[in-house]
Design a protein around this nucleic acid. Structure first.
Length: 266
DNA sequence: AATGGGACCTGCGCGC
DNA sequence: TGCGCGCAGGTCCCAT
């Protein structure tokens, strides 16, 4: 589900709705999600904490607590959060002081939740590349140069750039007119600059529209985003290009399905 | 050092 | 109706 725009949407909504509130209780229905510490210490460490603020780094959501600890949530493929009534299928439910619940939902149980004192030293954050929306054009082009892997896989590599996933990588490449299987080092300066601009554009567009609800993703009020209606190629296997109206192509790159237009993308 | 494939999970839609 | 298969928005681990 959640790439940068979806996680950013969640962060903004939660900032408005739960910052300043205190955690009254914690119910762990699926222990597999709690990566550290053990479930009992996790619950004990969380109870009574006040939520100071919410941050995002890449696709990870970070709750800053007044105890000095951080609740780090990674939704992976199919996680989402619902604020409000307690949800039956929640794998983790956090009761807030005002009687509302923050429910962690996850169809595939691949998500990860941690309570740590220092999240920046976690391997994921220590090796994470620059934020997609903070990376300037020149730095983007410099990091791109000399990389032999195909451009789409590079965009998906979180150590290269943080926050891009399979939806927005395909969308940005379509908008920039670049084939996903091109070697990164083959991009001309103009192409790299265009890709940088289109990437920023599509991420901002997606944030404005509260993310793409392609499958299970919902924003915290359990409503769908609206970006899915604006996607140009993602999930359009066997359909036509929105620009030239000819059939789109589909390939597997880095184990992930990839749609592109063989005419509009060079 | 960088790259590609498999593993981790569950559920849906499809063809037979 | 039922079953097997392919596929799904991410990341880590391992072999090469």
């Amino acid at each position: 589900m959640p790439e940068l725009p979806e996680v950013e949407t969640i962060r903004r909504e939660l900032t408005e709705q739960i910052s300043g509130k205190t955690i009254a209780g914690v119910c762990v229905a699926d222990q597999r999600l709690i990566k550290e510490p053990d479930a009992a210490s996790f619950k004990k460490g969380l109870r009574g904490s006040r939520i100071r603020s919410l941050a995002r780094r890449g696709k990870a959501l970070i709750f800053e607590l007044d105890t000095g600890k951080f609740l780090v949530v990674h939704l992976r493929i199919a996680g989402w959060l619902i604020l409000g009534r307690r949800q039956k299928k929640a794998r983790l439910a956090i009761a807030l002081s005002d009687g509302t619940w923050l429910n962690y939902m996850d169809q595939r149980a691949l998500g990860e939740v941690r309570l740590v004192a220092d999240y920046l030293s976690l391997p994921f954050f220590a090796t994470l590349g620059p934020e997609a929306l903070c990376l300037g054009r020149e730095e983007f082009c410099r990091r791109l140069s000399g990389r032999k892997t195909c451009i789409k896989n590079l965009l998906l590599n979180q150590k290269f750039i943080a926050g891009i996933g399979n939806i927005y990588a395909q969308e940005a490449l379509f908008l920039a007119g670049i084939r996903p299987q091109r070697q990164a080092l083959s991009l001309k300066a103009r192409e790299a600059a265009s890709l940088h601009a289109k990437l920023r554009g599509v991420l901002k567009e997606a944030i404005r529209h509260k993310g793409s609800s392609v499958d299970v993703y919902r924003s915290t009020d359990n409503r769908k985003g609206s970006m899915q209606a604006r996607l140009r190629v993602y999930g359009k296997k066997n359909q036509d290009c929105p620009v030239c109206r000819k059939p789109l192509s589909w390939v597997v790159l880095g184990g992930r399905g990839t749609c592109y237009c063989p005419r509009c993308q060079i």
